[in-house]
């Protein structure tokens, strides 16, 4: 069970985890962030280019029960794909939940886009980037 063999190992709240480990039955997590079947979304490229977790998922660390913080509609995705610079973080800040862009985000974003060889808007908004 990795972490929970040590952390909170006797908590009642974590009983489903222990049960799963004991019986070998997977936990059926309810999927909150659902995209349509015709969207082929790759998570790893977003993380690797410096989009932080909280940018899309909101403040999961402050959610007693996880909810979908953004619409996840195509318009919302396209807004960023057309102009990703405001959302690019330094790579060490990707997992930081309370990161906020600073006053110099515009130039920082442009710099990140350049050094990370970010694809152009035309490439990011080509249909085949997300739909096949």
């Amino acid at each position: 069970m990795n972490c929970h063999s040590v952390l909170f190992k006797n908590a009642d709240y974590l009983e489903p985890v222990r049960e799963s480990y004991r019986t070998g039955e997977s936990i059926k997590w309810i999927k909150i962030h659902r995209l349509a079947d015709f969207v082929y979304f790759d998570h790893s490229i977003h993380v690797n280019k410096g989009i932080g977790c909280s940018t899309c998922h909101g403040r999961v660390d402050e959610m007693p029960l996880v909810f979908q913080a953004n619409t996840l509609l195509m318009q919302w995705c396209i807004d960023c794909h057309r102009n990703p610079e405001p959302y690019l973080r330094p790579m060490d800040q990707v997992y930081v939940m309370d990161w906020r862009p600073g006053p110099n985000q515009e130039e920082l974003g442009k710099e990140f886009a350049r050094e990370r060889n970010l694809r152009t808007t035309a490439e990011l908004t080509s249909c085949s980037t997300c739909h096949r």
């Binding site: 039955e25 059926k28 309810i30 999927k31």
Partner: peptide, 12 residues
């Protein structure tokens, strides 16, 4: 809302 979908990870 559509019917629930589940994420079912491997135990091992």
């Amino acid at each position: 809302r559509e019917p629930e979908q589940y994420l079912v990870p491997y135990v091992k």
